[in-house]
């Protein structure tokens, strides 16, 4: 798996993690290009089917990242995201999607350094785990 470059889909909230990603850029923090950021207004709007679709289309990992508990711009969207994550972590591993491929983090707007670090760590962890099996299977 030397040259395996994972694809990571990251749903990041507009108010915290996306801003942190922006800050990482303006502060010249570097992080791997394996991640595709999808900006959403709130992690509370990430329907489980977005995540399921990402995995079925061959994403090697999915990151959902938003504001710390208590900091949600919409008061409680991140708490709802956490429940959905709990649900998906009960479903997806049953069908062979390793739980490690699905992550939820809280990264605040001022945490540019942490954002870059999170992505670096995630990429190296997924590289070790290898590709998502669904990538090449005809499962749509």
């Amino acid at each position: 798996m030397e040259d395996f470059e994972p694809t990571i889909i990251a749903f990041v909230c507009n108010w915290c993690t996306y801003t942190a990603a922006d800050l990482a850029g303006t502060s010249r923090q570097s992080y791997p290009t394996n991640v595709r950021l999808i900006r959403v207004m709130c992690t509370g709007m990430v329907d489980p089917k977005y995540i399921i679709k990402a995995f079925l289309e061959g994403a090697d990992a999915v990151l959902v990242s938003g504001c710390h508990p208590g900091d949600c711009h919409y008061i409680n969207g991140n708490y709802k995201a956490r429940r959905r994550m709990k649900l998906l972590k009960a479903i997806l591993p049953q069908y062979g999607f390793d739980e490690k491929r699905l992550k939820l983090t809280w990264i605040g707007a001022s945490d540019g350094i942490q954002f870059a670090r999170t992505i670096r760590d995630m990429v190296s962890e997924i590289k070790e785990l290898g590709p998502n099996e669904a990538k090449h299977a005809a499962v749509v």
Partner: peptide, 19 residues
């Protein structure tokens, strides 16, 4: 129904906390 409610302090195990 579980997805209709939430608590502030729960399910810490599904959140990655680092550093």
């Amino acid at each position: 129904p579980p997805l209709a409610v939430f608590k502030e302090d729960e399910f810490a195990e599904v959140v990655e906390v680092k550093h």
